[in-house]
Design a protein around this nucleic acid. Structure first.
Lengths: 335, 335
DNA sequence: CTGAAAGCGCTAACAG
DNA sequence: CTGTTAGCGCTTTCAG
């Protein structure tokens, strides 16, 4: 295996110094057009490409962002990762992807600190306080996506859990529902807790009770939760799920196992507005988390934190909107 | 910002040489247990972590694998990426993720060569021959997932497109169908072409005609393709889609726009067996591409190619199986 | 088993 | 604008 050509090889061939080669490949550097041409020619002939590893070692910037994502079977996250990937590529950053290991440990996640990633983005995964501390010590900004934390050094970008859940509750009330259900994601999830709290904050003062079950952010789990809710003596006729992924599972259980017609016999509402929510099979009422609006916020916050690590952490909430579809009782069916 | 501690700092504090520190963090290295302990203690106190960038520079191994994936809205790919991520993490590799840019250019993809990735995995994206050549020159193994190529230096792992499409064709024939449709992914996709060819290879010798349309591997595109097929004078009563993602779109069009009952009025068949294919709303007949069996093959092939770059490229075909569900006419409904 | 020395390929002052 | 000079933080001979 012939070793890859280095800047030194290019320099020799072009009859310039090695630093000239470096300059030729550095966007802002001052170099004569003629010199650059000679270098580019030599580089092309040799098949030279700058070694980003060596560059990172000295600039102390990897231009790599570590992303940890879980729940990739929930369409929301792949969409998010894809959008992040594009957006960061535009800014000259690449993503080092870690998926939430089934074992759940973060030893493997810590590994990304060894790569000196410039920032860490955690998409809906637990942040161990230990890991947060390590990142702070290493001066690496941490950004939580779709989850919050108590840690004061960590930024977060979330959808409007509070406003969204309230909008849903008010809408369901207005449609005449009186028996409400909630299917939580995980008890440990701030997102699920926030949505439930806001939902209850609207309903309970009106004297409404909310029955609940836990779906573990999982399709099968949400089906079981739905069965538990619908089989009970006082089954709810309006169920709000902590996300669309679970709501689709619930809709299937209601329709195919209980023979109920969503939108007539009961209302089913999700959260996220994933692509599949708009498919005819579901036509799911939901509150959107607009990825195209969230991603620029994430990118800006990340760049900002990288530029000045001691800046105040960002706590952004991106508003969505209630999207009424036929899985819920519509105005025309009121009463 | 205090700079991160280096191996040298740890050495000073532990009263050893810097190389001793290196050895303490190198699995196989020969070092006295007592020395290692002292070093580990000093490292912990300082919050030291080895710099993988510096290590990579000298070992000439990044232990990073570049992955390019597209079509993340098709559930198959996130599932695949997730499985790859886990499997490679077990082997001590991380994934640098590139998503297929909307613009489609590979300049950004070439960027990953600058990171000296140890291998490149292309999941259902076009391989430009230029890029393949660059990788070969750089000695970086390239592995195509779910796509083939003519390039003799490139390995590939695919599902059993030929066997699967034949199984589907034979099954549909046996169920008494006589008017067949095919919805292609992209004309340029080897996978779509292979599936179509095998499907026709079974049907045409039996005197069957196959009408076709192109769905561009896209949900909306597949809906349009389906409309075109079903609205034509001699509409097919059995349609095979190049993948499940498009088949689900087709099923929705048939059911909600044409009022047809899949499994009775027509048969709809996909390919992949994604999780959603098993959902009650679709209950889609399909031929599986078993991710849990494909991934180990991919990992093994990648490790092999990295170990000996001049080894023969791997061309693996992973068998799946026909999964009959209610979206197609079953034996009991024959005739 | 341990330390000294020599770089990996590149960027970043600093002169010229 | 260009070349020279130092390293970035680590692994790896090579002696001892």
């Amino acid at each position: 295996m012939a070793p890859l050509p280095t800047a030194y090889d290019v320099a020799t061939r072009a009859g310039v110094s090695q630093s000239a080669v470096s300059r030729a490949f550095t966007p802002g550097a001052s170099i004569a057009p003629a010199t650059r041409q000679r270098i580019e020619k030599a580089a092309a002939e040799l098949g030279y490409r700058p070694n980003n590893i060596a560059r990172s070692l000295i600039t102390r910037q990897s231009r790599i962002i570590g992303v940890v994502a879980g729940y990739l079977e929930n369409q929301f996250y792949p969409q998010l990762v894809q959008a992040l990937s594009h957006a960061f590529q535009m800014e000259g950053y690449r993503l080092l992807l870690f998926t939430n290991p089934p074992g759940g440990g973060d030893p493997v996640v810590e590994d990304m600190l060894n790569y000196r990633v410039d920032a860490v983005i955690l998409a809906s995964v637990m942040l161990s306080s230990h890991f947060a501390e390590e990142c702070r010590a290493a001066g690496i900004p941490v950004l939580l996506l779709n989850r919050k934390t108590d840690s004061p050094t960590v930024s977060s970008v979330t959808g409007d859990n509070d406003g969204g859940a309230r909008a849903i509750a008010n809408y369901l009330l207005a449609m005449g529902h009186r028996r409400f259900g909630y299917v939580a994601g995980l008890e440990s999830s701030s997102t699920s807790r926030d949505r439930e709290a806001a939902y209850r904050a609207v309903l309970e003062p009106q004297g409404m009770e909310v029955v609940r079950a836990v779906g573990h952010y999982d399709f099968a789990g949400a089906k079981m939760a739905t069965r538990a809710l619908l089989a009970s003596g006082q089954a709810p006729d309006a169920i709000f799920y902590a996300n669309d992924h679970m709501a689709m599972a619930g809709l299937e259980v209601a329709r195919f196992e209980f023979g109920l017609a969503p939108g007539r016999d009961l209302s089913i509402v999700g959260f996220d507005n994933v692509a599949a929510a708009a498919w005819s099979s579901f036509d799911l009422t939901t509150y959107s988390q607009p990825i195209d609006r969230m991603v620029p916020v994430v990118v800006r916050a990340t760049l900002e934190q990288m530029a000045s690590p001691q800046a105040e952490p960002v706590r952004a909430v991106v508003e969505g909107g209630l999207i009424v579809r036929s899985s819920s009782r519509g105005p025309s069916l009121r009463g």
